[in-house]
Each structure stands twice: as structure tokens, then as C-alpha cells.
Amino acid sequence: MRYGVVVLIAGLTGLLSFSFLTVAIGTDYWYIIDVNKPNYTGADDLSSHSGLWSINEGESSSSIIPSFAANTSSLSEVERHLLGLHQVVVIMLPLSLVLLVFGWIFGLVSSLARSPNLLAGSASYFLFCSLFTLSGVSIYISYSQHAMEEFERVVSPEDLAYVDVSFGWSLAMSWLSYSLEVATGLLLMLAARIIQLKGHHDSGVTIAMV
């Protein structure tokens, strides 16, 4: 492949990874709870969907998740553990977003300089960023599973029969962002290899002409 095409695709995938992670962090469809209770005539919708920052119940009710402002002295050991997992998630994913900004700038400078070492460094940086995103998403999944186990412990099996839980499209966007971060790193590695091969080829041509 040509160097220009590779770095152009890498720039596009890097930009998309940042955009997808921004959308994921800013939306509230990470975890969805659908309640379809028969013969329910209450005015409130029992279903809810939540994100990293808030929980939306029904059509208009919304509450902020107090990740750092919560009074932990009144919480149980399980609740403190869940809160700790959530705190890690809301730190790691925004941090990954900030790192992506610097990675995109570093990758742009490296591609313009056509330096194999800088391109390899940019590639390693993007792969490092992807570990933050992967860790944050994995911890969120673990947090959700533990929260569901605690929910199942306090809710009767009869009521659980009408509850359907699933991960939403916000989580899917974060997975896409992770995949694109990895793809960006691999493309920058390929660009560095293309420059190295071109340098060896040019050196060989020069020696042959001499």
C-alpha cells in the first residue's frame, strides 16, 4: 500500500475512535432495564436506562450517579465495592478520551515528518490508549454484572421474570472506539514499515548507481 493512503486511513480511524468514545461517554444507553409487568396500571414507567453519569427512569425522571459525592459510611461492603468500580470507570474512560487527542496530534506530526521512529512511537501510544478504553469498558461490564447480582438478591424471582436487562448502544460505541484505536495503531506501524522499506530501497538504488 502507498504511504499516503495508509496515514490517511489511520487519521480517519483515529478521529472516528475519538468521536465514538465521546458519544459513548456522553450518552445514557450503557445499560437498559425493560420492565414488562402485566396488569400494571401505575402512572410511572418502571423501565430505565443508564450511562456513566446518570440513570433515566421512565420518560422524564433522571438522577445523577454520585460517584465521588456519596457518603460511603452508610453503604454496605457490596455497595462500596460497586461504587469503587464505578469510580474507576468514570476516571479511565474520560482519561482515554484525553489521551486520544494527544495521540492524534502526535500521529499527525509523525506522518508529516515521515519518521519511522516517530510513527512507531505514535502507534505504540495508540495501542496504549486502547488499553485504557478496554480496561474501562471491561470494568463497567464487571460493575454491571455485580450490580445485577445484588439486584437479583433483593428482588423476588416472580418480579424478575418481567425484567429484561441488556447492554445498550452506548457500550457498543465504546467497543467500536477500542477497535478503531487498535486499528489506528496497526496502521501507523504499517506506515513506519513502509518508510523503512522505502529508505532501504532508496539506499540500494543509490549504491547501485555509484
Rank of each mutant, 00 (worst) to 15 (best):
T72I: 08
D159I: 13
L112A: 09
T184A: 07
M173L: 14
D45M: 13
L16R: 12
G185Q: 04
V165K: 01
S166H: 11
S60Q: 10
E152K: 13
E57C: 15
T13K: 05
I194H: 05
V182C: 05
I65L: 11
V109A: 15
S144P: 09
L186R: 04
L176W: 07
L180T: 10
A120D: 07
S174D: 00
S170E: 01
H86G: 04
G26P: 00
L134E: 13
V89N: 07
M189Y: 09
A161T: 15
L100H: 10
E57P: 12
F151P: 02
E79W: 11
I139P: 08
A161D: 10
V89K: 06
Y31S: 14
D202I: 03
V155S: 13
I65E: 00
S96K: 04
S156N: 11
V7G: 09
S17R: 05
P116R: 02
L52D: 01
D28C: 02
F151W: 02
F126H: 10
M209H: 00
Q145L: 12
L197N: 10
L171W: 02
S54H: 06
S174F: 01
W53H: 03
F20D: 00
Y40R: 05
V165R: 04
S115Q: 05
I32E: 04
S203I: 07
L12K: 05
I64V: 07
V205W: 05
I9T: 14
F102N: 01
Y140N: 06
R193T: 13
G136R: 05
V182P: 04
S48A: 11
W30S: 02
L83H: 03
V205P: 05
S203F: 06
K37A: 07
L119G: 00
A191W: 02
K37Y: 07
T27D: 02
V210Q: 11
V101F: 10
G4N: 13
S50P: 01
